[in-house]
Amino acid sequence: MTVLEKIISRFNSKIFIYFLIAITAIYTLVFTFLHNIRSDGYILGDWLVNYQDGGFKRRGLSGSFFFLLQDITGIKLNILVYCFQVIIISLFFYWYFKLIQYKEATFLYLSLLLSSVGFVGLLNCVDYVGKKEFIIFFLFAAFVYSTDNNKLTRIKEFAFCLALFIATLFHEVTLFFIPYFLITLYLKTGKAELGRYLKYILAVFIPAVLLLLFGKEINEGQSLNILKERGVVFTRGIFFWDIDERQYISDHFKEYRLYFLSVGISVFHIGFYLKYLKQRKVLSILLVGAFLFSLPLFYLAIDWGRWMYIHMIFVIILFALFLRKSNSVYASEVIILNKKFYVTLLIVVISLVYRVEMSGRGFTFEGLLYRTCIAPLELLNKML
């Protein structure tokens, strides 16, 4: 055995995953705090869309909820929102940790987390932090854990459906990722249970239809004044948003077409992973279906990188189902220097090199390696 083989054979993917969970959790919480304390109009602002200005509308439940809490406690909205974000983000990382805790990690599975639109995506693009999708990340991680450990009782199922109903009122994006919940159920039982699936479908479609039929605009004209009276002043963000997003994508298609390159890399990455799964044919069809179901998001909204990122996080959680169970919290597959290892390593290197922005630039060479190795040296050179 060569020196390289000895080093590689001792590499523990599980410990590295734990480290990555801790780093991304801390990073997410810190930068979410910074966004909130500065009254960011996109991240904090999205949580403060409310029913007080004009009535029922998409995303409005969260703002009205925090208004009620402020009336009861007298605490600043920035702090109330951040406390809620801390709970939701922490619950996501907690349930994801619980999901993989007694599973045998592989280097190939670790590569998914290191994808430019996986956990590393949070480190590459600070605009991903603190957003409402962490609600469905948390719900899905808890759902997969319960399903995988045979703890999904009938009462829990109804609780998850109720949570999904509420999550859709917090952000309508929940609707477009419901297929992953159905895929999880199918993979666990091995059979189609249409009646069972209907509960989950109705849980997101009913509020979505209500929003479509009766929902008002996010800003009906008084939101900024209402928020100012409550101690929050925005100068930009969601309440100022007045862009034809389809036209914007068309006008900036030179930048947006680079997303196809990033999607291609991610498809190859997931396809290579599926090559080593027994249920790869069925799962490939199901994942394509889940992606196609989300296509309206890419047509209606400019955050293409964000939709890719959400898909990858769901895939990372879902694929934990296929990891072997173990009695050790440090269980990690021994790495062998073969074709699988070298292709996986190449994917990891490529993933660390490029960056996918939330909207606009779909591919740049400003990935994690650039941000940690090159950018600091450039800054130091300017200072000197």
Score class of each variant (00 low, 15 high):
Ser332Leu: 06
Ala208Lys: 12
Phe92Lys: 02
Lys199Gly: 03
Phe11Arg: 07
Gly305Asp: 06
Asp244Gln: 05
Tyr354Thr: 11
Ile21Ser: 01
Leu122Gln: 12
Gln222Phe: 12
Thr235Trp: 10
Leu108Gln: 13
Phe138Met: 14
Val144Gln: 00
Tyr370Gly: 03
Leu187Glu: 14
Leu68Trp: 13
Tyr42Gln: 13
Asn149His: 14
Lys278Phe: 09
Ile75His: 01
Tyr51Ser: 04
Leu80Ala: 01
Ile26Asp: 08
Val349Phe: 10
Trp47Ile: 01
Arg371Phe: 03
Ile166Phe: 05
Gly215Asn: 02
Leu187Arg: 12
Leu295Ile: 14
Lys103His: 07
Lys275Tyr: 15
Ser332Asp: 11
Leu323Glu: 08
Tyr259Ile: 08
Ala105Ser: 15
Thr168Gly: 04
Ile238Met: 04
Asn78Glu: 15
Gln279Gly: 03
Phe341Thr: 06
Phe160His: 01
Ile347Val: 14
Cys373Val: 13
Gly63Ser: 01
Gln247Gly: 07
Tyr259Phe: 15
Phe92Met: 05
Val349Glu: 04
Ile302Phe: 09
Leu113Gly: 05
Ile317Pro: 05
Phe260Asn: 07
Val120Thr: 14
Leu212Asn: 11
Gly55Asp: 02
Gly130Tyr: 00
Ile374Pro: 04
Ala163Asp: 09
Phe66Lys: 02
Lys216Met: 10
Phe107Val: 03
Ala192Tyr: 11
Phe341Asn: 04
Asn327Glu: 13
Arg355Gly: 08
Leu139Phe: 08
Tyr342Pro: 02
Tyr186Pro: 05
Trp95Met: 03
Val356Asn: 05
Met308Asn: 15
His311Glu: 11
Ser351Val: 00
Leu61Asn: 00
Phe93Asn: 03
Glu255His: 12
Thr106Ser: 15
Ser223Ile: 04
Lys339Met: 13
Arg324Thr: 10
